[in-house]
Amino acid sequence: MQPFTYTGLPTRVIFGHGTLEKLGPEVDRLGISRALVLSTPHQRDMAEDTAQRLGSLAAGIFSEAAMHTPVDVTERAMREVERGGADGIVAIGGGSTTGLGKAIALRTDLPQLVVPTTYAGSEMTPILGQTENGRKTTLRDPKVLPETVIYDVSLTLGLPVKLSAVSGLNAIAHAVEALYAQDRNPVIDLMAEEGIAALARSLPATITKPDDLDARSDALYGAWLCGICLGSVGMALHHKLCHTLGGMFNLPHAETHAVILPHAMRYNMQAAPIAAGRVARALGAGDAAKGLQNLARRVGAPLSLKEIGMTAEGIDPAVAQAMANPYWNPEPLIEARIRDLLERAFHGSDV
């Protein structure tokens, strides 16, 4: 076995059904007396219910969280933090809301409690992606890692089928890249393969029967494991491409991951055969890239960048941006091959 370094991230996790009942005691345990509740506009009702649960511990609601964490939205949220005298954050929702909480924590170091309602996984990472002037940049800082995460499976029962599919594939992407990351280790390898397997078996079931509590539990468990993977090791080509496309064209985050994943896997398979074998085994497939695309097809996820809003004119600028300040990747990045990858992803070609 090769030498490795493993660092366990210090987030407290509460997982189960009906665990939202523990919100108040957990906020109190973190020493928060005035919590600002965050959500997207779509989940304002959920934020209001959360604030009601907190009672006097709630400092107010900010329900303008947006995809890709725009800096101007964070600046508005910061004014609300100051106005309400908030000394902590409660974020309820998906990756957009979690990202806003992290952006606030980066600027204030306030404690965070996150209640995920999707399979985004970002609640388990010290990573923050922010968008400004059409460019998405990422950073890694312990200050943005939430102190507590409450996973309540019941909150995912109402997650729309389409969003369940793409959110789950987004989570799988975290684990796939962890398996060939530069700083991978055997502990994360175990979590990654188990996370992929849990989502691969549960996502089709949640599509067929959205109120299946066992399937939803399995999916949320898999998303948690995949989030740990993303937070513990580095990212590579897949995430670089998704960050580039999301920042430049404001493409939907999870859908972009779903489309790019099999193509990025194909690009790296020869350079990372052990990782590809683990992915294939977790999927119950003979070929990792084909297995990922077949899973996406099976759960009704989009297969092309074209169908999620990108235009062909964006391919060349995206290639240039992806080649600028690239993330480490097991397979060398060659401009012509990256262009071919994006063209195939744009058209939804088979991998």
Results as ranks from 00 to 15, higher is better:
Ala345Asp: 00
Leu157Pro: 00
Phe15Trp: 05
Lys22Ser: 13
Thr206Met: 10
Lys290Pro: 11
Ile104Val: 14
Phe346Leu: 10
Thr74Tyr: 11
Leu261Phe: 02
Ala171Ile: 11
His253Ile: 12
Leu342Asn: 13
Asp214Phe: 00
Gly300Leu: 07
Pro273Val: 04
Gly95Trp: 12
Leu190Pro: 10
Asp214Thr: 07
Pro126Thr: 09
Val27Thr: 01
Lys209Tyr: 07
Gly84Lys: 13
Ser39Glu: 03
Ala181Ile: 07
Gly129Val: 12
Gly246Met: 03
Tyr327Ala: 02
Arg184Cys: 05
Leu245Cys: 08
Tyr180Thr: 11
Pro111Met: 13
Ala276Ile: 01
Leu36Arg: 06
Ser232Glu: 04
Pro330Asn: 14
Ala35Trp: 00
Cys226Thr: 05
Gly129Ala: 11
Ala171Lys: 06
His17Gln: 15
Cys229Thr: 05
Asn329Lys: 06
Leu237Ile: 11
Met310Ile: 08
Ala322Gln: 08
Lys209Ser: 07
Asp109Asn: 15
Ser56Val: 08
Thr311Tyr: 13
Ala345Thr: 06
Asp316Thr: 09
Gly284Pro: 04
Asn268Pro: 03
Leu213Ala: 12
Pro302Asp: 14
Phe249Ala: 15
Asp287Phe: 09
Thr97Ser: 09
Ser232Leu: 02
Ala271Pro: 04
Lys162Asp: 15
Ala198Met: 01
Ile61Asp: 09
Leu145Tyr: 07
Gly234Ser: 14
Ala275Gly: 09
